[in-house]
């Protein structure tokens, strides 16, 4: 079929277009040349060794970890509350509230960033890593809610009632029944929001003040051609970390669905 062939060519081109640049990163990261360009000149691990001793980069890494972990924990806590509320209770304006919580998913990040700068400065909160955490929580919470809603939706209400009926308090029911059953969803939410925060640039750039996160640090290094191979190797490491985190998140999401007795429905996931 002619049409079929063209479709094949199209999808191949498309895949090359999006993945080739990304795959070039690790190739250049091991290339023995200060200029990031073909032809390759030889194999080396010196760029990684250089990273090992770059203390400014280490600070940026710690900043990113701090922001990522804080973001992951906060957005997962908010996500748990919102998902629980939206699946368990009916209240007026629930749809509207959920809509507004999910809005940052589609809002241009630069607008969120500028708006946050304006608001935070007005409120007298100085630009800092903490401000970045606030911004990241804003964009990560919708993802957490989506993941956790599917976990809570899959949870059979009568399991919690059975626990109460068997003599447990609502408090211990949460820990003996609810939490173990939604745990994979919670882990998945932690991993996803951490990954999003780790890679996020625009909000971090606007809000971070003097402590750069990793993406902001990378951007600052791009001005120096000599630093480019180092940035490329750092980029490959980030790529690897993100990939591992996302795969782990997807693994936990599937396990969550399986545990609740429903096979993955193919919706709640992002992969």
């Amino acid at each position: 079929m002619r049409q079929g062939r063209w479709l094949k060519v199209y999808s191949l081109t498309y895949l090359v277009f999006i993945y080739a640049p990304v795959l070039l990163l690790p190739i250049f990261a091991f290339n023995d040349s200060a200029i990031v360009a073909f032809p390759l000149t030889g194999f080396t691990t010196k760029w990684f060794e250089e990273l090992w001793s770059a203390t400014v980069m280490h600070e940026a890494l710690w900043n990113s970890l701090y922001v990522g972990i804080a973001t992951a924990v906060l957005s997962t806590v908010f996500g748990t509350c919102a998902a629980r509320a939206s699946t368990r209770f009916d209240f007026r304006g629930k749809k509207a509230a959920m809509g507004f919580i999910m809005l940052p998913l589609v809002l241009p990040e630069i607008i969120v960033a500028v708006a946050l700068v304006v608001v935070l400065v007005q409120m007298g909160i100085s630009l800092s890593l903490f401000a970045v955490v606030l911004g990241h929580v804003l964009i990560c919470t919708p993802f957490s809610i989506a993941i956790l809603s599917s976990a809570f939706n899959n949870l059979d209400l009568s399991l919690e009632e059975a626990s109460l009926d068997l003599g447990e308090t609502p408090f211990s029911t949460f820990f003996r029944v609810t939490l173990p059953l939604v745990a994979p969803g919670i882990v998945s939410s932690l991993l996803i929001s951490f990954t999003i925060s780790l890679d996020e640039f625009i909000i971090a750039f606007f809000l971070t003040g003097t402590d750069p996160t990793l993406p902001v640090y990378i951007w600052s290094q791009l001005r120096f051609t000599a630093k480019l191979p180092g940035v490329v190797s750092l980029g490959s490491l980030l790529l690897l970390a993100s990939l591992i985190l996302l795969l782990a998140a997807e693994y936990f999401r599937r396990r969550a669905n399986k545990k609740a007795g429903t096979e993955g429905d193919g919706t709640g996931g992002f992969l």
Partner: peptide, 20 residues
């Protein structure tokens, strides 16, 4: 008086067996 303080126990229609 909440369910956890009553001298009754229930077999649910779905059985509500804890899957974990």
């Amino acid at each position: 008086v909440p369910a956890n303080h009553r001298p009754t126990n229930m077999v649910f229609q779905s059985y509500a067996i804890f899957p974990h």
